[in-house]
Simulated scan of single mutants.
Amino acid sequence: MVRGKTQLKRIENTTSRQATFSKRRKGLLKKASELSVLCDADVALIIFSPRGKLNQYASSSMEETIGRYKRHVKNTQDSTSPFVDQNAQLQPLKHEAQRMSKKIEQLETSKRKLLGEDLGKCSIRGLRKIERQLDRSISIIRARKTSLYRKLIEQLKEKERILVAENAMLREKLRLDQHQISNEDNAAVSIVETALSIGLPDQILNYTLFLQQ
């Protein structure tokens, strides 16, 4: 069975990354030594670990090899055209653009897998990893939804409290208005009854009838 090409990318696990660095560093130093011996080449190798530790190998003298490299670079730059210098200045930008392009491609691939697409090449381990990512995403979404529901319920309860207070104020105002109207009606009835109860004395009434005769 033909083994597929492994995609090189940064190892996320710190322990695995350190173990891989140590193993590959030893292999690289060994290859540099073999190249120097087999081909009689002047080899200089400089490696800085992720923690900043220096690892180096030189088939002769590191200082002489670096000086030779600097002289070679200077002579090369002096003999090239300005267009080459411009191209050299653009190289970091090109590398950054390539790196970002690969990053975007990785994100697009991850997005398609999370949507359930392009899963044919995924192993059981990869599918489990995607499943765990989806479970974490669902948990976060549900927690956010629950938080929004709670805020909405609190807002509705606050509106209910305000409406109940306003309703109580309106009832009290209506009761006071009805009481005032009732008192005014009672006062008016009392005045009418008082006016009706006041009449002329009998003597004055008889005298008035006598004069009319």
Rank of each mutant, 00 (worst) to 15 (best):
R10F: 15
R10C: 08
L90E: 09
N186F: 07
L163M: 11
S16E: 07
R132F: 07
Q133V: 10
D135P: 09
K94H: 13
K31G: 01
T65C: 07
A165W: 02
L54C: 02
K94G: 10
P201E: 01
K157L: 09
H72N: 10
D40A: 11
E34T: 11
R136A: 14
T6E: 07
T208C: 14
L205D: 06
C39A: 03
R99S: 13
R17I: 00
D118Y: 13
E160M: 10
G116C: 02
P92E: 02
D185N: 09
E96H: 06
A165L: 10
S110M: 08
Q213Y: 04
Q18S: 12
K5R: 14
R25L: 12
I140L: 15
L45T: 11
R150H: 04
G52R: 00
K159N: 07
A187E: 00
E166D: 11
S190R: 03
R150N: 06
G67A: 10
R125E: 13
C39T: 06
Q133H: 01
N206V: 05
P201I: 00
I162D: 08
Q212R: 14
I130Y: 00
G4W: 12
R51T: 09
Q89K: 12
F21K: 02
L38N: 14
N183T: 11
N167Y: 06
L163E: 11
V37R: 15
E12N: 15
Y149I: 08
R128Y: 05
Q86S: 15
Q86H: 09
K9Q: 15
L107Q: 08
A143D: 08
D85Y: 12
R10Q: 09
I66E: 01
I140V: 15
S16A: 10
A32V: 06
L90S: 05
L156H: 13
L176W: 11
Y69R: 01
L115R: 07
K9G: 09
Q77G: 01
Q178I: 00
S182D: 03
L35T: 09
T14D: 14
R71L: 04
K23I: 01
T76G: 05
D118L: 06
N87R: 10
G52A: 00
I162M: 11
L28W: 05
L152H: 09
K26F: 12
I124V: 13
Q18V: 03
R3G: 09
A88H: 05
T20N: 12
D85A: 01
K9Y: 14
L28H: 03
D185I: 04
G4T: 07
I138W: 10
K23A: 14
R17N: 06
N183V: 08
I138G: 01
Y149N: 15
S123W: 13
D40G: 13
F210C: 06
K151I: 02
R161G: 04
S79P: 00
K9V: 13
K173F: 00
Q178L: 04
R125S: 14
Y57R: 05
